[in-house]
């Protein structure tokens, strides 16, 4: 590879060679690069929700129309070859369980497999979770990823009062050198979603 002398000095040529030899294979490999979302926990706030401890023995059921795990892929041209797997099924269950423990003195949570058979003192029917990841250049040298998550659930109490919880979270992060930053946006949006969901569920359950 040759460049005009006035364009590339020897040092710059060395930088370019170094790039071609070491970085380029990595960049191409990056098309199958994956990263786990690990930092969802830091957004979770259910431990700070008020302890209400309603007296009595309560039962609750949680029915999920889809599992909270999968792989996010960026739409569009930028970073779309990368995959961002997420798995927060356990964290979501833990959040719901923690909220119930805060609200009721004694509560038994059942993971329901059928929506109709699971009516208890509290029934939580969670609709399929959606995630949209978009990456784009903000300036020529700085790319950003934005993750948007949508979650809705129908919560019904024994006295048939109900609420339709709808949560939408949107989080952005720098795409980073090889688009790995997309995972940060995905994690942050998921963390915010669970956090907002927990808050709304808690608010509904503490009201009589």
């Amino acid at each position: 590879m040759q460049f005009p002398e006035n364009m590339m000095s020897n040092n710059n040529m060395k930088v370019l060679r170094f790039f071609i030899v070491t970085i380029l294979p990595f960049m191409l490999f990056a098309c199958s690069y994956t990263q786990n979302t690990e930092n969802v926990e830091k957004f979770l706030n259910y431990s700070s929700l008020a302890e209400v401890n309603k007296q009595g023995n309560y039962t609750a059921s949680l029915y999920k129309q889809s599992q909270f795990n999968g792989t996010a892929v960026a739409v569009g041209q930028f970073c779309s070859a990368h995959k961002y797997p997420y798995d927060f099924d356990g964290l979501f269950d833990e959040a719901v369980s923690s909220v119930l423990d805060k609200v009721y003195e004694t509560v038994e949570l059942e993971m329901a497999s059928d929506e109709m058979l699971s009516r208890k003192d509290v029934s939580i029917d969670v609709k399929p979770f959606e995630i949209l990841l978009m990456c784009h250049p903000v300036t020529e040298y700085y790319w950003e990823c934005v993750a948007t998550t949508r979650l809705s659930a129908l919560v019904v109490k024994a006295d048939d009062t109900k609420i339709n919880i709808k949560v939408e979270a949107r989080k952005a992060s720098s795409a980073g050198g090889v688009c790995g930053g997309g995972a940060v946006a995905v994690s942050s949006a998921i963390g915010q979603t669970i956090s907002d969901f927990s808050g709304q569920l808690h608010n509904f359950l503490i009201t009589d």
Partner: peptide
């Protein structure tokens, strides 16, 4: 200049090798 050059090549490779939509 070399930094910009490298960046543009990288960006093009990203887009070209990953099936633009």
């Amino acid at each position: 200049i070399s930094f910009k050059f490298i960046f543009i090549i990288t960006a093009l490779l990203f887009v070209a090798s990953c099936g633009p939509k």
